[in-house]
Design a protein around this nucleic acid. Structure first.
Lengths: 255, 255
DNA sequence: AAGTGGTCTAGACCACCAT
DNA sequence: TGGTGGTCTAGACCACTTA
């Protein structure tokens, strides 16, 4: 017989304000995840236990979990349990990496660290990250190879306050994916990203890194990556050589 | 007292094969919608009536409808009913139109028809549309203006068999959105689209239409639009002048 | 065999909308 | 006021996983 516990939750009462019960249950779960009580990759208590701890029916608990699963915050595995979602290489590839060869071949990119530095943030990145101009940031420069050929040049801007202790060494260890590194080392889960793309003539620096002539048309993608609560965690400018690769998108949902 | 009807549905029995009950209910609803029994914009019978007609509990019926709502096939309106989703201008703007001014201003584009013709399909479009090379198609050429300035040049390829009776006049009438035209005039609902983008130097024809110099870097987006069952209905090549506008994407879901 | 999530039911009550 | 979808419950049973 197992002793009943409340798993650190207070009962969520139905009558009071704050919207539907399942939504308050969802927020309670989200707060528990963000607080680190259930680390990325770890299991949640069973649905029966959670519904008892929160004082709601199992149907209501499932409704809340359904939404968190739809948002990729949780993952259900029948017969095993419910887990906090991990940024695996697969999720990265299909969720946040949009470049593939023109013939449709998708491939895990090979990453080369070009430079790593601490600096004070410039205006465009400060605005995207929602921090003050001049705040300390890390600047990381990467080159991504597909089939041995350089295709993408990335410049990342990371708020130093959120990535305390980040070092060049961490990046040199070639994490399976950068977002996986954020998650496991800093407890930061990237849940979505906003991208703005345009075509530009390659400047000399980017052209050299990509091995193309200055002035070649390339795609420039500016990405702001967000975590829970739409909080920005990374600003990134990618320059893509689209001579033999495409930037691919599947469109479906409005807003 | 209202006479009970089955609304043309046969009861869905739980025991047999074919996956979960709610999924077979979903398919039954989808077939009814595709068949035209419930036209775009029209209301479905109430959930109580549907669950009775299909012989399932209201919870199961709601589960099926939940998925169709998540896929934007149906729309629920509390107190009014459940409706077959319409391609309104809003849905178009947020679901399928991705160009906005660099400062973030979103605007409904002004459409100019440049040319309209019948022709035999070329290879790239034939492959994208899943038809045989040489099959009859409509070729439509549009120019989209934002704030009075030409920003996008579109070349559309439509299978003639799916768009019987399409005429230049229909396009001249400036439909609120092209996908709305497909839906109301031909019963074709675009549910999702696949886009492949790259940066290229503007060729002379596109440059003239967009009012820019030949060779200017522009984005070229090739879109395949799909309806129910991932069936292709339109192939489109867009050339975008990104001098003052961006191609914008919100990324979240993996696959 | 025990524990987990997945499905399905039957019904009560609430919130919203039209008339 | 009556009809619609939205929420919530309590429980039964199934399918899958692990030991």
């Amino acid at each position: 017989m197992r002793r009943p516990t409340n798993h650190g939750f207070e009962a969520v009462v139905p009558g009071s304000a704050g919207g539907p019960l399942y939504r308050r249950v969802k927020l309670a779960l989200l707060r528990a995840i963000e607080s680190g009580r259930y680390p990325a990759g770890g299991a949640l208590p069973s649905e029966a236990e959670l519904s008892a701890a929160l004082g709601v029916s199992i149907g209501t608990l499932r409704h809340a979990v359904d939404e968190l699963v739809a948002e990729h915050t949780l993952v259900r595995r029948q017969g095993r349990g419910t887990f906090v979602a991990l940024h695996t290489i697969d999720r990265f590839l299909f969720g946040f990496f949009h470049v593939e060869r023109s013939d449709g071949l998708r491939e895990v990119p090979n990453l080369e660290l070009l430079s790593f530095a601490r600096a004070r943030v410039e205006d465009d990145a400060a605005q995207a990250l929602g921090i003050s101009r001049g705040d300390p940031v890390f600047l990381v420069e990467n080159r991504l190879l597909l089939q041995g050929q350089p295709v993408i040049h990335d410049r990342l801007v990371l708020p130093a306050l959120m990535f305390k202790g980040l070092s060049e060494k961490r990046f040199r260890e070639r994490p399976s994916s950068i977002y996986h590194l954020y998650q496991t080392e800093f407890g930061i889960t990237v849940t979505q990203a906003l991208e703005r793309a345009r075509a530009v003539a390659a400047v000399r620096a980017a052209a050299r890194v990509l091995g193309i002539a200055t002035g070649t048309p390339v795609m420039q993608v500016r990405r702001t990556a967000l975590t829970f609560g739409d909080k920005p965690v990374e600003y990134r400018v990618s320059t893509i050589n689209t001579a033999h690769h495409d930037y691919v998108q599947l469109l479906s949902r409005p807003a």
